[in-house]
């Protein structure tokens, strides 16, 4: 089978062409395999302290994270592609009360700690949301 293709190939082009094509084929196949190993489906969450991005979290993996807010440590939990603030130092704990968010239209805002958690996904088409 391969030999047949080889012979047909030699009619159309020369040996070097065939070598070129084989090389390209191998490189492309390897890179496709490589990309798919490292591909992570699912969106990211971005954690900001004031204006600075301090942490980017992959929502496809469950986990717990600690960041430093203005009033102390803020504990963040990721579970089932959702994220929430588990615990924080603030008078009314409004931050942890906001619960889990999982879509790009939602944001967790911790004013006393100056922490914002936003979700970034494929539907970035909205410039803003009025609530």
């Amino acid at each position: 089978m391969v030999k047949y293709i080889h012979q047909v190939g030699l009619v159309i082009m020369n040996k070097n062409d065939i070598k070129l094509i084989v090389v390209i084929f191998v490189i492309v196949t390897l890179s496709i395999i490589f990309i798919n190993i490292f591909k992570k489906t699912g969106s990211f969450a971005k954690v900001y302290y004031e204006d600075d991005l301090i942490l980017k979290i992959d929502l496809s993996k469950d986990g717990n994270y600690k960041v430093n807010g203005y009033n102390g440590e803020v504990l963040i939990e990721v579970k089932d592609n959702k994220i929430r603030v588990d615990r924080e130092n603030s008078p009314r704990h409004l931050c942890s009360k906001q619960g889990f968010i999982d879509s790009t239209t939602q944001t967790i805002v911790c004013l006393p700690n100056k922490i914002i958690i936003k979700i970034e996904g494929k539907d970035q088409e909205l410039d803003g949301v009025v609530k």
């Binding site: 239209t105 088409e125 909205l126 410039d127 803003g128 949301v129 009025v130 609530k131």
Partner: peptide
Amino acid sequence: PYKIGIQDPVDKNNIYKI
């Protein structure tokens, strides 16, 4: 133009109008 979503008052995860 800018695309602004209006939050659904009943289901806060949803946008009911853009």
